Computed example of a mutant assay.
Amino acid sequence: MEAERVLLIVEDDDAFARTLQRSFERRSYRVLRAASLEDVKGLMAVDDPPGYAVVDLKLAGDASGLACVEYLNGQDPEMVIVVLTGYASIVTAVEAIKLGARHYLAKPANTDDIEAAFGRAEGDPDVGLTERKTSIKTLEWERIHEILAETGFNISEAARRLGMHRRTLARKLEKQRVK
């Protein structure tokens, strides 16, 4: 008999979390949900801890999902963690992997994409390289996300370090959001 697959979804968007939950339950996962690091800590005290986790990068109140990744990996280094984000950047992808995530997916990603990421333990040396040159906008976007990661996704502090008004930074983040 196949062992029960337990999945933790860390997502502050309740509608999206419910949709993911239903989709994974149809695939025979038992799903736990959390909206914050505090919720995650409470759920990890259960008798049957999850073997899989899907963690949103940006949680409510400018909280970072990277803290959840670090905590989950510290609790169980064998847990398969996938970071899912609408704010994809190279900096946060690198940090997520360093902190213990197995994969980093940009939204929109579906259940098939996430489950495929659970199964991929090794990198792919044959992945295609992009031919596109880096634009000024891309460099700006990468710098913004580098500072956001350094500040723990504190928008006010990131704006101060970048030398711009907080509202300007918030507008840039909303405008560049990967959907």
Rank of each mutant, 00 (worst) to 15 (best):
A3Y: 12
A3D: 14
R5I: 07
V6H: 11
V6I: 15
L7G: 01
L8H: 03
I9Q: 06
V10N: 04
V10K: 03
V10E: 02
D13Y: 08
D13T: 11
D13N: 09
D13P: 06
A17S: 13
R18L: 15
Q21F: 02
Q21H: 03
S23I: 01
R26L: 13
Y29N: 00
Y29V: 02
V31E: 08
L32H: 02
A34L: 01
A35H: 06
A35T: 09
E38Y: 01
D39P: 05
K41H: 05
G42H: 06
L43I: 05
D48V: 10
D48L: 11
P50R: 00
Y52L: 00
Y52D: 00
V55M: 10
V55N: 07
D56W: 05
K58D: 10
L59C: 00
A63T: 01
A63S: 05
A63G: 05
S64H: 04
L66H: 09
A67I: 00
C68V: 15
V69L: 10
E70I: 00
L72R: 01
G74E: 03
D76P: 12
M79C: 07
I81A: 07
V82M: 10
L84W: 12
L84P: 11
T85R: 00
G86D: 05
I90Q: 13
A96F: 02
K98G: 05
L99G: 04
G100E: 06
A101P: 06
A101C: 02
A101S: 02
R102K: 14
Y104E: 07
L105G: 06
A106L: 10
K107F: 03
K107M: 01
P108H: 01
P108Q: 02
T111E: 13
D112Q: 13
E115F: 06
E115S: 06
A117L: 05
F118G: 05
G119K: 13
A121H: 11
D124E: 15
D124V: 14
E131T: 14
R132S: 07
T134V: 15
S135P: 00
I136Y: 13
K137H: 09
T138W: 11
E140Y: 02
E140S: 02
R143Y: 15
I144H: 02
E146C: 14
A149D: 08
G152D: 04
G152F: 07
G152H: 03
G152K: 03
N154V: 13
I155K: 01
S156G: 12
E157V: 15
A158I: 02
A159H: 03
R160Y: 09
R161E: 01
M164Q: 07
M164L: 11
H165V: 08
H165R: 10
H165Y: 10
T168Q: 03
E174C: 12
Q176F: 15
V178T: 14
